[in-house]
């Protein structure tokens, strides 16, 4: 193995460690922010990680005894790990980046969502089915918006290769369609991460956790971990696409800069979640449709402008 491939494989490990470790921390930030807004003390920053560890040791209750039910958490967690493994963090391609392109990335992200649905459908619980129905509806509307953020990079560089799409366009070159897209990305953020006001699928007070209602213990831990990592990915994405790299020459410095910015995005997520009540699914649909049309406009601007 020559040194470059060795580094590239090391980067796969770094990515995994980074996301596995920081995702619970960022979730902790959101919880702390929400608590402070509501005049509470809030849990320790690492509380989400403690929750995960505790869940891993709890009783694993299987309500249906069919394979899809047991497989779903594994697929969801595995799919998001794959996303992390192929992601060129801080502008550096990992050893696995050449095996996937932007379309693969989108499909892998969707696969996680599908796993959640399959698990919910397997569970025979009405609340789970209602939640799954909402989750899928949200996914149909929000997925294309995510994709259009990446599409700007595709149009500018004429490539679907991930590193090129994410980092190949200098921030200034995005023009006004890039600006619109940043705004759209921020407006869609809560929906991407399933936070209030778009926590319609889980809706704890109303659907008791929706798709996850029948899951407990380690299975639930895997789903929770999946959600946290997904949340971190979506918060990280606009930073990677629209904020220029430091290009300090040192991976660690570039990385820390990006992560600090991601933490800022989480601060925003927390603030919005704490101050906005949940939408109904039909209200949310109209909201997403608006964003979709705007995003399409921005893409058209990049195409014909």
């Amino acid at each position: 193995m020559n040194p470059t491939t060795q580094t590239a494989w090391l980067l796969v490990g770094t990515n995994l460690l980074l996301f596995l470790a920081l995702a619970p921390l960022f979730d902790g930030i959101v919880r702390r922010v929400a608590a402070r807004v509501q005049n509470r003390q809030g849990p320790p920053l690492w509380q989400p990680l403690y929750d995960l560890l505790k869940l891993l040791g709890k009783e694993n209750i299987d309500a249906v005894g069919i394979l899809p039910f047991r497989l779903a958490p594994l697929v969801a967690f595995a799919s998001i790990l794959c996303v992390v493994m192929i992601l060129p963090v801080a502008g550096r391609a990992t050893a696995l980046t050449p095996y996937a392109d932007t379309l693969s990335l989108i499909y892998l992200l969707t696969l996680g969502g599908v796993a959640v649905l399959v698990g919910a459908f397997a569970g025979k619980n009405i609340f789970a089915l209602i939640g799954a129905s909402r989750e899928m509806t949200t996914m149909i509307m929000v997925e294309p918006i995510l994709f259009m953020i990446l599409l700007l990079g595709v149009i500018k560089t004429g490539s679907l290769e991930l590193t090129t799409v994410l980092y190949g366009t200098p921030a200034g070159d995005y023009g006004w369609s890039g600006l619109i897209m940043i705004v759209i990305a921020l407006f869609a953020l809560q929906a991407f991460v399933g936070r209030q006001p778009f926590d319609i699928a889980e809706a704890e007070q109303e659907l008791l956790g929706g798709p996850f209602i029948e899951y407990s213990g380690p299975n639930y831990a895997l789903f929770k971990y999946y959600m946290m990592i997904k949340q971190m990915f979506y918060a990280y994405l606009p930073i990677a696409v629209f904020v220029p790299l430091l290009h300090s020459g040192l991976l660690v410095v570039d990385l820390i800069a990006q992560m600090l910015l991601t933490a800022l995005v989480f601060l925003l997520i927390g603030l919005l979640a704490a101050t906005h009540p949940r939408y109904r699914i039909d209200q949310a649909l109209n909201y997403f449709a608006g964003l979709f049309v705007l995003a399409l406009g921005a893409v058209a601007g990049a195409l014909f402008g």
Partner: peptide, 10 residues
């Protein structure tokens, strides 16, 4: 990971 915590099945 699912088995790491030694959780019981029921």
């Amino acid at each position: 990971l699912r088995r790491a915590g030694g959780a019981e099945q029921r």
